[in-house]
């Protein structure tokens, strides 16, 4: 590895540490101004609380359970969103049929959907359903946009040369769709964490970050409440980071 690359990396880490220190400082100042732990606990107390949490086996079981719910919800919305999105992108009638449904889902308050889902599903499945339903329109819309943006000149070329439909799909449509799907997945993952945890707060499944947030609130345990919130933020960032790396590695647009 070249010396300049190592220096760049050190500078990057230092910058990140400085930015983190700045915001922790801001947090601490706000805590001192308000002066009540119940409203804004000290950053150090929250980190202590987080340290206590991560040392328990239950913490990891809870994180794992919530993560699985988010992933299942996102995966289902990805599979259905892409499939229906491709069909709707290729057929304007299907698009016209599905578009109002997507508009309704996008504009309905998530809390209304969670309450309805509480009636329909068991507590553990509510977050999965909510993640799916909230991510589905994003993935669907991006897929439709991707299909509609496929270079018509390439399609015309494939038509003249009588290229098999399968090859047209695999070598023109799919790679053209990739950037749209990547953007959709990154947005959907961030959203999925938020809505899934919100659904857990209301549905109280066993072993769930949302349930822990609710319990912390019930006992007015602000440091634990903040600690769990930090966990959600960090998990969301880790997911986004991993996905961005995968996208960079596999994107056909890397050339």
């Amino acid at each position: 590895m070249r010396a300049s690359t190592i220096t760049d990396k050190i500078m990057k880490v230092l910058r990140l540490l400085l930015i983190t220190a700045f915001w922790v400082g801001v947090w601490q100042v706000v805590h001192l101004i308000i002066g009540r732990d119940i409203y804004v606990p000290s950053a150090f107390v929250v980190f202590d609380s987080l340290q206590d949490l991560v040392q328990t086996r239950e913490f990891w079981e809870i994180v794992y359970a919530s993560m699985v719910r988010v992933l299942i919800g996102v995966m289902i919305s990805f599979l259905l969103g892409v499939s229906f999105g491709i069909i709707a992108g290729l057929n304007k009638w299907v698009y016209a049929l599905f578009n109002p449904l997507m508009v309704v889902i996008k504009s309905t308050p998530v809390i209304s959907i969670i309450i309805v889902a509480l009636v329909w599903f068991t507590s553990s499945n509510v977050p999965v359903f909510i993640s799916f339903l909230m991510c589905f329109p994003i993935i669907w819309t991006n897929t439709v946009t991707g299909i509609q943006n496929v270079d018509q000149k390439l399609l015309q070329m494939a038509k003249v040369y009588q290229v098999h439909r399968r090859d047209v799909f695999l070598k023109i449509y799919l790679p053209s769709l990739t950037p749209f799907m990547n953007a959709a997945m990154i947005t959907a993952l961030g959203l999925a964490w938020k809505v899934s945890v919100a659904a857990e707060v209301l549905s109280h499944p066993r072993k769930a970050i949302g349930s822990e947030l609710y319990t912390s609130k019930a006992y007015l345990d602000s440091p634990t409440l903040f600690a769990w919130t930090l966990v959600v933020v960090m998990l969301s960032l880790i997911f986004e980071f991993v996905l961005a790396r995968l996208v960079k590695k596999w994107s056909p647009y890397r050339r």
């Binding site: 000149k153 390439l154 015309q156 070329m157 070598k171 023109i172 790679p175 056909p252 647009y253 050339r255």
Partner: peptide, 8 residues
């Protein structure tokens, strides 16, 4: 125009 597929 060449109409080449950029990722191939």
């Amino acid at each position: 125009e060449e109409r080449l597929i950029p990722w191939l």
